[in-house]
Structure formats: structure tokens, C-alpha cells
């Protein structure tokens, strides 16, 4: 998306300057909307696994088919989400060692399952437990935003993956997650970022740029130096770093650098 010049005489509502707080709120609202859907998937998965376990059975892949209508409707409804599902912890299911109940929406709007080879005898990509979207949610017990990263497992697209752990009676069962392609995320946040008085960019907790109006720090670049970990729990108007300001985006682990 190129930056378009502001038409003369445009009203402040559409084209006026915004503040960093406005941008942080837009980022927060955009991704909280996705997290709402991920939490619904988590609740569906947890309820399903609870009822199967209560019946005295170990869950199987066929049980997860119950999640499909919900996943399909969320993929169709949420333009920002390109893939969504439940990823089982290894050995959770009785019939397979590992499983992704994962659905994707194509450019033509068709919803289809992701069918991976999870047999280590045949695939070098069978172990998914080291990916951030799985490991962060499992290890912290909290929701996570993984990426931006090239998702060569599911889509081959540059993506963000939002995930939350699924637990039943305190036991980790896997993660519920949704993929947001960077191009879609950019389309959601760039219009408001471009209305800031000066260039700015968003970085993840490791300093990787997720969206930017600053030609020196394009998406995928690393912004090295600051201690980003302290920013999300710090003051809402952020902390100073060099000549810049690092500002949290609500509870979303992305940081706005202005």
C-alpha cells in the first residue's frame, strides 16, 4: 500500500492527524477482535474435550470434527483471519500421535482443511511443538502473538499467529489459534498509522517490525537495542528510548515506536 497525499480541505474525521494513543488503540482493537475468536475456539475445544473425557474415553481425531462448523463460520465472518483451528498437544489423541484441526480460507472464499504429514518417518516438519504459537502459549499459560514470521508449515505466507492455551482441569491439551497474514494486518492498521504526524512502526516483543510507515524500518527488519519486555507492563504513554517513544498497545504484545 502506498502512502497517498492528503487531499486539501479534507475533514479531520477522515484525514486529520491522529495521536500515538489512537494508533495503539487501533492495533489493540484489531487484534483483540481476533483473540475473541481464538477464545471461542478454545472454549469449544475445552468443552468438547471435557465431555469426551467425562465419558471415560480418550479423545480421537473424529471428535474434533465437532469444531469444524464453528471454525468455518469464523473464517468466513472474520476477514482478517486466514486460518484457524485447534492444535493438539502430542499424545492427546488416541488415534494419532499429533494433530492440527486446522482450516484455511482461500482467496476465492473456499474453506478447506490443512492436511499435514505428521509422521516423522516421512516429514521433516512433523514436530510443531517448537513453533512460537505453540511453545509460548504452552510455556507461559497465557495468550501469545507469534511473528511476524514466514509460516512455511501452513500457508507459506508472512504471518502473525495468535494463540491461547487450551486446558482442562489445569492440564494442557493444546492451543487454539488463528493466522493473520501480515498484508491483511497492514491493511487494517496502516491507514491510521499514516495519519500520525511522523513515521512510526510496530515491533513485536523481540524487536521485529510488524508494520511501519518508516522507510528505514520495514516489516521484517529488527529494531535492536531497547528492552521491549518492560514496555507492555509499563505506563500507557510508554517509555523514552533514544529520541523515540515506545508505547504499549493495551494487552497486545506489540509495541508502537514513534
Amino acid at each position: 500500500m502506498g502512502s497517498s497525499p492528503r487531499p486539501a480541505g479534507a475533514g479531520p474525521d477522515l484525514f486529520g492527524e491522529v495521536t500515538a494513543a489512537d494508533v495503539a488503540a487501533r492495533v489493540r482493537d484489531t487484534l483483540e477482535g481476533v483473540f475473541d475468536a481464538v477464545r471461542e475456539i478454545r472454549d469449544d475445544a475445552a468443552a468438547l474435550l471435557t465431555s469426551v473425557t467425562a465419558a471415560g474415553r480418550q479423545p480421537e481425531t473424529t471428535d474434533l470434527a465437532e469444531l469444524r462448523p464453528g471454525l468455518q463460520s469464523r473464517l468466513t465472518r472474520l476477514g482478517l483471519v486466514s486460518g484457524a483451528g485447534f492444535v493438539a498437544a502430542p499424545k492427546l489423541l488416541a488415534d494419532v500421535p499429533a494433530w492440527l484441526e486446522w482450516w484455511q480460507i482461500g482467496s476465492g472464499g473456499e474453506v478447506r482443511p490443512l492436511l499435514l504429514d505428521l509422521d516423522p518417518e516421512h516429514s521433516a516438519y512433523s514436530d510443531y511443538t517448537h513453533w512460537d504459537w505453540f511453545a509460548l502459549a504452552r510455556d507461559t499459560g497465557r495468550r501469545a502473538v507469534a511473528g511476524p514470521y514466514v509460516d512455511y508449515l501452513c500457508s507459506d505466507e508472512y504471518s502473525l499467529t495468535l494463540s491461547v492455551p487450551v486446558t482442562v482441569d489445569g492440564r494442557f491439551m493444546g492451543v487454539a489459534a488463528a493466522d493473520v497474514y501480515l498484508s491483511h494486518f497492514e491493511a487494517a492498521v496502516m491507514p491510521v498509522m499514516q495519519r500520525l504526524p511522523a513515521p512510526a512502526f510496530l515491533v513485536n516483543a523481540r524487536g521485529r517490525v510488524a508494520a511501519s510507515t518508516c522507510a528505514d524500518y520495514l516489516t521484517g527488519a529488527l529494531f535492536k537495542g531497547p528492552d521491549f519486555a518492560a514496555v507492555p507492563d509499563g505506563p500507557a504513554d510508554g517509555v523514552a528510548h533514544g529520541g523515540r517513544r515506545l508505547r504499549p498497545c493495551g494487552g497486545i504484545p506489540l509495541i508502537l515506536v514513534t
Binding site: 492436511l115 504429514d117 516421512h122 516429514s123 521433516a124 516438519y125 512455511y152 508449515l153 507459506d156
Partner: peptide
């Protein structure tokens, strides 16, 4: 289950 190496 269909074999798949993602994009490969």
C-alpha cells in the same frame, strides 16, 4: 491423512 509438506 494426506501427506503434505506444506507448500512443498
Amino acid at each position: 491423512m494426506t501427506r503434505d509438506f506444506g507448500g512443498a
